[in-house]
Write a protein that binds this DNA or RNA. Structure first.
Lengths: 186, 186, 186, 186
DNA sequence: CATGAATGAGAGTTCATTCAT
DNA sequence: CATGAATGAACTCTCATTCAT
């Protein structure tokens, strides 16, 4: 079988895994992923050594997309919009998708070494957007990266649960982001 | 009658389960819980019919403690302090404890019917504290209960991960709560 | 506690066990038997060393009753009535009672040595009734004890299943017994 | 594709299960069945979803064989031989095989719905043979299907016990069947 | 390189039996 | 002697991973 077939299979598996993990979380079975990809389990294992590796691959792919978006936003001009949009974008991306949180953990700690670089880039991207936003007074200057990451993680995890209607999630995120803007108490 | 022994063992099991679940989350094995409690698995099952029941018992006990604290806080006079302290208290209680989030879910949805009453009480307690705080202008009047619960859930989940140093969690919570206060943009 | 209490307890346990085993068969739990007897499991074990022993005690008691009936029937005069009534009596006694079959096995093989004597008496009782019935030409002379016991066992087991309405069991037993009478083909 | 292997293994499992269930009855352990088949437990479960399903598969297969024999016998000409041979055949098939009775229960009650059709066919087969035999005066006309089934069940259960030598079983069955023939009392 | 059957180490749960109270 | 809590081996079933075809 030609090389291109293998590449195609890898992609089929990745997509199936993304769907299944989104729906069922980490407890999804490998058989189910294979079934949805239309291949045998063996093929899944050919492309991804373990369930963990498959999962990491998905997260990596997702973070790559997010990183690209961060780049675009950073270059789009308005630092305020860039920061808030990215924050919102990440949360929206996770909404209702189980087992996706780790995309953010990736930006934090506990990652496999191969992904250290990507994690650093994510941290850097958020840091850049944050600093730009702070320099234009769009975000409180006393908010440092670590706490912003923690808030982002929490927002993402709440969104993942699937327990909250979109409107509620929106309002809660609005409150959160609004609170990050510089303000004077009334 | 070995009643006192039984009570003691039940408590040993409960504590062991609390510890183990805190450390390992819901995937913790019943054998491990029994081992830590210094009893046989059968004893664990004598006191708690299923793994789920054991878990629910722990969550229920914890939420009861929190509810008592909510009562005290509400009667302690200052609505501002009461609200922010309770929010902080819940998050602090969850910090580093895996599988604890569901205490909050309890206040949301998806609970077993026996715990419906407790869940309702939790919602009510938070609602009371929120309304009081809003009436004294300690919290934005446009923040409704559902979004507050979502924010609380997120903060709790982030705390549970164990991925963030206490200082970072503190600062992130500070930012979040500060943002809930009424304010004018600068 | 006085001796009489112990005796009373033993009897309570025996009766509870008889009921429970009749209803649920050998898979009945010891806890359930104790509960129905109104005692603790420990008490059940004080009187009967194992579940098997308890079961054997019940069977033994039942067979004793049946043996007494066999005596009465043998002395009641009519050999024909005696044989058919006893056969019917045994089957009726087992109807719908799970795990009772072994009363008959007792008359066959595989019994614990303590019950060998009782088993022998049962065989003897049936043999006596059979011979008497054969001597008065109430039963075919070519039917020997072993095959009669096998037929009795089968009839009893079918009755125990609880799968057949009383009327059906009656008719089947009627056919069986009728077939045991001396007859000429038509 | 290891299809042929799978088929072979399924058959190995089925045979091992048949053997083990014959020897030990329904209480046989799945581990033991796997061991005898020379496969892992997982393989047993791959082919048969539950212990119950495995058991049902065996019974179903056996009843299918019996049904085929019933067909042959019905078409073989002599109604008398057909009926008595089939009755004998069923009992012989069960002799010494624990947990086989349910093949007959299948013809009665309490069956899983998927086997309703097979059960009905078994009833029908026996009914056909019975009616044919009755029309040629080989069997008493007052013996209806339900009681015949009850007698068959009892004979089968007695045979299953393994408590009776073949000669005894033979004679008991001879007595039973002989009694089913039309006759005049002497 | 793909397949999916096979593996087997657990995981939760049950229950006859023991023994501290 | 009675109690019932404790025990832990057994049992069924699951699923990530391996490997023969």
């Amino acid at each position: 079988m030609a090389r291109s077939d293998a590449v195609r299979n890898r992609e089929k598996v990745r997509q199936a895994a993304e769907t299944v993990l989104s729906e069922q979380g980490l407890s999804a079975r490998m058989d189910e992923i294979a079934r949805r990809a239309g291949v045998g389990v063996g093929t899944v294992y050919r492309h991804f050594a373990t369930k963990e590796a498959l999962y990491q691959a998905i997260v990596t792919a997702r973070v790559d997309v997010l990183l690209a978006e961060a780049d675009q936003l950073r270059e789009s001009g308005d630092p305020r919009t860039a920061f808030f949009t990215f924050f919102t974008r990440i949360v929206a991306d996770a909404t209702g998708k189980k087992a996706y949180t780790d995309a953010l953990r990736t930006a934090g700690i506990d990652l496999k070494s191969e992904q250290a670089a990507q994690a650093a880039r994510m941290r850097q991207a958020i840091d850049d957007l944050l600093r730009n936003a702070q320099q234009t007074a769009a975000v409180r200057r006393d908010a440092a990266l670590p706490e912003i990451l923690a808030l982002l993680r929490g927002a993402t995890m709440a969104a993942e649960t699937g327990d909250y209607p979109a409107a509620v999630l929106d309002r809660s995120l609005q409150l959160l982001l609004d609170g990050l803007r510089p303000h004077a108490d009334i």
